[in-house]
Computed example of a mutant assay.
Amino acid sequence: MLVLVIRTFFLYFSIIFIMRMMGKKQIGQLEPFELVIALMISDLATFPMEDIRIPLLHAIIPIITLLFLQVASSYIELKSEKARKLLTGTPSILIRDGKIDIKELRYQRFNINDLLEELRLKGYFNLSDIQYAILETSGALSILPKTGQSTATKDDLNITITQESLPIPLIMDGIINYKNLKLIEKDETWLKNILKRNKISYASDLFIGILDSKNKFYYQLKEGKGNKK
């Protein structure tokens, strides 16, 4: 039992040292190849802790080899743009000039609910407030709001304001959300009138339709159906 405890202590501090050697970025947001290395290190460290018959060197040597691979990969990335694209990929623009890039969204397997959630976590509740949204190689979402959305607040200007409500998705990928319609105490006839005022024939033509926090109807047509109003 004592041998098992000593081996665990040794591996624990060895892994901490190696992770520190990989840099602070390794501890924060992992790039794809860094995640692979972290998973492999965890597996290599687990087996010697579970089975004392396995010599510690059988874990330490592969782990140190992975450390050198990570350091070498990082160095190559610094020197080569092609290697950087191959190992970590490139950022993807999900919203460009205020319009969702539907093709890129589907290519990244990033559904509209995920996008709206990430925007809310960043403090943006309306798609109409976003100029650019970029999915970084680490998986984080970077937001560039439209000019005027991140300046002085209404409180700073002593303007009387009305509390805004949460945006309500009404149409997603051409499908009407009747539950949300009921939530705002509206019916399909009301929604059809909204579509008619925006010169939209069918709900199925929309990629997304949202009643935003300002009680305005924001929408984007599907590809080939025209441009967002």
Rank of each mutant, 00 (worst) to 15 (best):
L30G: 00
H58G: 01
S213K: 15
N215C: 07
W190T: 02
M172G: 00
Y132C: 07
K222G: 00
L57G: 02
R96Q: 10
P169E: 07
Q70P: 03
L183A: 07
I175D: 07
Y12E: 09
R197H: 06
D43F: 11
I18K: 07
L121Y: 12
I208V: 02
D155G: 01
P167Q: 03
G148V: 10
I161L: 12
I37Q: 06
P167W: 05
L39W: 14
M49P: 01
T46Q: 12
D51N: 09
E77S: 05
L105F: 03
K222S: 03
I208K: 00
D212R: 10
E50R: 12
E31P: 02
F33W: 14
I175A: 04
Q131T: 04
I37L: 12
L191G: 00
G123F: 11
L206H: 01
L94C: 02
F17T: 09
L119R: 06
S92T: 09
L35K: 13
I15H: 04
M172R: 12
G226M: 13
D155A: 03
I130R: 08
N177R: 07
E188V: 10
K192Q: 09
T8Y: 06
S42L: 15
K24L: 08
D43N: 12
A45M: 12
E188Y: 10
K225Q: 08
D101P: 00
I200F: 04
Q163P: 07
G98D: 11
R7P: 00
G139F: 09
E136P: 03
L2I: 15
G209S: 02
Y12P: 03
I130N: 02
K225T: 04
K103V: 02
L183T: 07
I130L: 12
I194F: 02
E77G: 00
D51S: 03
L157W: 11
Y218K: 09
I76M: 14
I102N: 01
F9V: 11
S73Y: 07
L105K: 03
K146F: 08
L57E: 12
S213G: 03
S142E: 13
G98S: 08
A38K: 15
I176E: 09
S165T: 10
L191Y: 04
D205F: 02
G174W: 09
E223K: 11
K225E: 11
S150Q: 14
E164I: 15
L11V: 04
P167D: 00
P55S: 06
A133P: 04
I52L: 15
T88R: 15
N113P: 06
Q26C: 05
A152K: 15
E81D: 09
T137K: 13
Q108K: 14
K25R: 15
R109N: 14
L2V: 13
N193V: 07
F17D: 10
N227I: 13
G89E: 08
A140S: 14
G174S: 05
L44R: 08
N111A: 05
L44I: 04
M1Y: 12
L141V: 06
V5A: 07
I95M: 05
D43A: 07
L87W: 12
I6N: 05
G209V: 03
R7H: 06
M19G: 01
I15A: 02
M19W: 13
R84E: 11
S213F: 06
A83N: 09
G209D: 02
A203C: 06
G226L: 13
L119V: 02
L115N: 01
